[in-house]
Design a protein around this nucleic acid. Structure first.
Length: 478
RNA sequence: GGCGGCAUAGCCAAGUGGUAAGGCGACGGUCUGCAAAAUCGUUAUUUCCCCAGUUCGAGUCUGGGUGCCGCCUCCA
């Protein structure tokens, strides 16, 4: 099996063929930083991170670019509301993104270009579009001529004539055609602006992505990611600008992740229907959130709810226990010939690993891949109980460790990978609690059940849960 | 109105024409002083929204319904 990726223009899965053998260029539409990132935003980046990790696992040298659009009307409005510079608004939200990215185990992109640091490039690009008669200036504004790009609408699946009859195309008398969109907007008094051949102004939305992707990845690259809601108009317009300017194909595979829903509506900054990432992180550990997001195919819509996240927590705990147990078994496994039934176990481990990679090869199906990790966990639990007090066979354990390690790393399910995940959780229990637990153990040894139960209650009141297992007493934070 | 997507167990969710992954929950067993935790087992075989069709064979392909949803305005 080879990697197959869904392509939005042809609406079918195609075998992945890189433009340059061994290399991959990936551009991810980042945030317009007018506000705090929410879970839906981070989902897009988690999906792209998983994709990048898999491509790197396959041996590709990936160049990963994620922009920040740090100037636009909403940022300006926000700054005006608060009476501060637009720069402050942009920077504080960019910082939040970096914090959350680290928590969610995102590998840093190789480049994080800013729109405001690419103004010269943007101006040059617009000039080129005007030269080629794909754009025109009206006063201090510049517009893109939508009808000059014959493939306009191909990506999002609409045709320009239908769009005119559409109900919500706004009328703007400055434009030659209602479909045209702004490449450059003249600044009103007091607005942040940059000098240009058309007067002081700022870039329109869309153009920055065409410019920044090309400047780092070239005119034609492999993957372009972003939320499904960017398909139109953002990506359609971006594609129109880029293809018109270069005359080349722009992107080979568009990766549009499904949207996160809250209640029965899309999470969205503009209508306030969202959970800020910070709020969610207060309630759930970041690896739970990441697991939750990757436990469905990235192109499908996900409903956000705390119940779903709690389920994800239980599920991930199961996987963590499997990792811990596997690591323990790895210490004691012995090199020997396999019994007949162990041969069957080994084959099963191999088949789950194959299933994992078949799923990932099928348009990065992380949900199917996670399923294979659970199957492995169950198989191993059954195996441990089947061997009783005997030591497990090295061959089975080492294959399992290899697979588990790869799986966790590719999906990025745990910061620090398998090794960190397989560490048991006994950290930061205060002395006092440990002493109480020890006292209770002593009471139990003496079969003083009344005293033991009393101590258990006391520990519970202090917020700790006691679990008696064959391996010893475990105290957990509630 | 135009374009597109989805419909699989109580819930979430994979599924490449050939015996329906996986998780959560529930129930039962094992372990345990009792619990808890863990673990094992069971949990769609008159069945993959409905109706036709293609096929030796359809959750998977085709046609027609029905029901949800998204985009067409700023949006990850």
């Amino acid at each position: 099996m080879t990697l197959h990726v869904y392509d939005h223009v042809t609406r079918s899965k195609k075998e992945f063929v890189p433009i340059t053998p061994g290399k991959v260029g990936m551009y991810v539409c980042g945030l317009t930083v007018q506000d705090k990132p929410h879970v839906g935003h981070m989902f897009a980046f988690v999906a792209c991170d998983m994709i990048r990790r898999y491509l790197e696992y396959l041996g590709y040298e990936v160049t990963h670019v994620q922009n920040f659009t740090d100037i636009d009307d909403k940022i300006i409005n926000k700054a005006a509301e608060e009476g501060i510079e637009f720069r402050e608004v942009a920077d504080r939200n960019i910082e939040l993104f970096y914090d959350y990215a680290a928590e969610l185990n995102l590998q840093p992109a190789h480049h994080y270009p800013l729109a405001t640091e690419n103004i010269d490039g943007i101006i040059n690009y617009i000039e080129k579009l005007i030269e080629k008669d794909h754009a025109y200036a009206v006063g201090s504004d510049v517009y893109f001529k939508v009808r000059s790009f014959k493939d306009y609408g191909q990506l999002s699946g609409r045709n320009v004539d239908d769009m005119i009859t559409g109900t919500r195309v706004e009328l703007d008398e400055k434009k030659l055609d209602v479909l045209d969109f702004a490449l450059w907007k003249g600044a009103a008094a007091g607005e942040p602006s940059w000098e240009s051949p058309w007067g002081a102004g700022r870039p329109g939305w869309h153009i920055e992505c065409s410019v920044m992707s090309a400047s780092i990845l070239g005119d034609h690259f492999d993957f372009h990611g972003g939320g499904r809601d960017l398909l139109f108009p953002h990506h359609e317009n971006e594609r129109a600008q880029s293809c018109s300017c270069t005359g080349e194909k722009f992107v080979n595979y568009w990766l549009h992740n499904g949207l996160l829903f809250l209640g029965d509506k899309k999470m969205s900054k503009s209508d306030g229907n969202f959970f800020a990432m910070g709020e969610v992180l207060e309630k759930f550990r970041p690896e739970i959130i990441r697991f939750f997001l990757l436990n469905a195919h990235f192109r499908s819509q996900i409903d956000y709810s705390e119940d779903r996240l709690k389920e994800a927590e239980s599920a991930l705990d199961r996987l963590k226990r499997a990792a811990i147990k596997l690591q323990e078994m790895n210490q004691v496994a012995e090199k020997r010939d396999l019994t007949e039934s162990e041969d069957v176990v080994l084959q099963a481990v191999t088949s789950y690993r194959n299933r994992f990679f078949a799923a990932m090869d099928d348009d990065f199906n992380s949900a199917g891949a996670i399923g294979a990790l659970f199957s492995l966990s169950k198989e191993l639990n059954q195996y441990y109980s089947s061997i009783g007090d005997n030591f497990p066979a090295m061959e089975i354990i080492s294959d399992s460790v290899t697979f588990f390690t790869e799986g966790i790393e590719i999906l990025g399910l745990w910061r620090g990978g398998f090794a960190e995940m397989a560490k048991s959780v006994s950290s930061d229990i205060p002395e006092e609690i440990i002493a109480l637990a020890a006292e209770r153990d002593k009471a139990r040894e003496e079969k003083n059940w009344a005293r033991a139960d009393e101590l258990r209650d006391e520990l519970q009141k202090k917020g700790y849960l006691v679990e008696d297992s064959s391996a010893g007493t475990v105290v957990k934070h509630l």
